[in-house]
Design a protein around this nucleic acid. Structure first.
Lengths: 192, 192
DNA sequence: CGTTCAGTTGACTAAGGTCAATTCCCGTGG
DNA sequence: CCACGGGAATTGACCTTAGTCAACTGAACG
């Protein structure tokens, strides 16, 4: 079960067999049903997770409207650092779009991870930097790119996800209503 | 000259007189002319700065168009962490909008700062968290808020800056062309 | 065969982009 | 003191695109 997780961590830092055992003990299995929430608005994010199977989205709830800004699937780490690091209430929501199998570690156990794993701190820093930059670029794109371009980029970068996510959530990610996404798709296909 | 800087740091962590001396030596004075660049596209950000006097903006250069996403003035710290932390080329630009007096510390000297100041690491982490969250919320707002609302929020939050920044840069920050900002202003004033 | 729900389409509205003309403000020089 | 020039800001006319509301289509399912 933890095989994928170990592989992912080992692609970033080196691990001794003992450290692998340690990680196996620190991360706990967790099942999440489609539609359920991993983190909600106002709640403090106290878990750092890894997706073994399934698909999730991050969104901002704004006046009853969903604004999706990130998708994550198999072999990705899940955490709202904005809430996790300072242990403050989250302004974002994380929701499962499919039944998910996850491996999670608590905030407290992550501190043990940092102490027990030689390159643990390095792992934490590298993941944080990666997430920081990815988020910044993702959000910047809302600023600089048109919905049409965002959609084309999404399709290009996530051809596999496109099959698994409904138009409703894709529209929310692109930054328009489903009706408008439908028109954008039409416009694009007629241009070819 | 370093008085304001020391005050700002002391509002976050405690400093001994010796540590104050150390900071005075590590930070160097730097003058920047209006219009000049503190950091450009493709360059690695190797300085962490503090604005003693003046005004700057952060922007994304996208197809020849400026997209301003942040302003900073007196008593604020200046750094593109996205480039500074991993020491990678920046995708963002930092420009002086007025003649600026700054105090800057190099990446290398900041490591000395971390080692020499008892609560130095804490300072670094708190500033990073603060910037991280501020940036995330600032960029999220492009996603969730209308230009009209963004403008009203800007005026409310930065009444002093509004006087010092031309409509051109404010429009860029709000996310529209100057002509459209002009119409937004008209619309708002007629609604009252 | 009807129900349901996602996705599409149509008609209309609202708002920003574009290009061009005009006005406003401010400093300079006669 | 006034006239002029130049840049910033505003305004007008027109175009494009997303939002809204409502109707319709199509596929899955009992």
């Amino acid at each position: 079960m933890t095989e994928k997780l170990i592989n992912s961590i080992q692609s970033i830092i080196d691990l001794t067999p003992k450290e692998v055992d340690c990680i196996n003990q620190l991360f706990k299995e967790k099942q999440i049903k489609k539609g359920d929430f991993i983190l909600t608005d106002g709640q403090v994010c106290n878990q750092f997770g890894f997706i073994v199977k399934g698909l999730i989205r991050y969104y901002i709830n704004h006046d009853g409207e969903d604004k999706t800004y990130y998708f994550a699937c198999e072999n990705n780490f899940v955490c709202n650092y904005e809430s996790f690091i300072p242990q403050m209430p989250s302004t974002k929501v994380i929701q499962a779009l499919e039944d998910c199998e996850m491996l999670v570690i608590s905030f407290a156990d992550l501190q043990i991870f940092y102490k027990s794993i030689t390159q643990g701190e390095r792992f934490g820093r590298l993941i944080l930097e990666q997430v920081f930059i990815e988020l910044l670029q993702g959000l910047s794109s809302f600023y600089t790119d048109t919905p049409e371009y965002r959609y084309e980029k999404f399709v290009k970068e996530h051809p596999n996800l496109q099959q698994r996510i409904s138009q409703y959530y894709i529209a929310s990610y692109v930054g328009v209503k489903p009706q408008s996404l439908s028109r954008i798709r039409k416009r694009i296909s007629s241009q070819k």
